[in-house]
Amino acid sequence: MIWKIILFLLISFVSIAGIAFPIVKNPQAWYEFPNIPGLEENAKIIFFHVPTAWLTLIAFLMSTVFSFKYLKNKNMDDDAKAYAAAQLGMVFCILATVTGAVWAKFAWGAFWSWDPRQTSIFALLLIYGALFALRSSIESEEKRATLSSVYSMIAFVTVPFFIFIMPRIMKGLHPGSADDTGAGPIVNFQMNSSMLFIFVLSLIGFTILYYWMWQVSYKSVIYRDKLNKNLIRG
């Protein structure tokens, strides 16, 4: 219970701080953010866009890890965990795509421009979609678990291509692309300490939120399966 209250306070603080704290030229007080040239007020969406993108990847990683565990031990609970992680990953993937597109509209001038990062998040959406299409097409439980585990592991090995290699060869607008003249993502060199602090808080808050959602969601999947089996038997 205490965790939920802390989480509530954390997320509320991050939301209020992220939206309401002013952006000024020379930040003096602790609640003032620096003005990043080229981003200005747009910079605030970083507190919501980056955590969703981060959680998309974490969810995908967890889904793959539990798929691997399923293939190793053939325990249906692991499949439920992998499935729940993938479901949440899909939700956060859509959120990251939408917040990214909104940010792109105001920072780059168009909702969608096939930037390497946009291409990779689109590929991740496709992978999640394909995973659910595969799952819904198979009746037998064990076959479904095995085949979707195999598919998510095959899909996982393509992710490094999207995350590390594509942005290096394709020209892009996102921080960290091949023609980016800066030292790296804006996080490294233009945020002041208060902005960085709230950014890290938001990452932590969203990660705890994800973990909690994932626990509720995989338990509900397991209970649903149990109830279904009881119905069939009884």
């Binding site: 590929a123 496709l126 992978i127 979609g129 394909a130 299409a133 595969l134 598919y151 095959i154 899909a155 393509t158 291509f161 999207f162 290699i165 594509m166």
Partner: peptide, 9 residues
């Protein structure tokens, strides 16, 4: 549907 994301890179 399954092949496209794998083949995309």
């Amino acid at each position: 549907v399954l092949s496209f994301p794998i083949l995309l890179p």
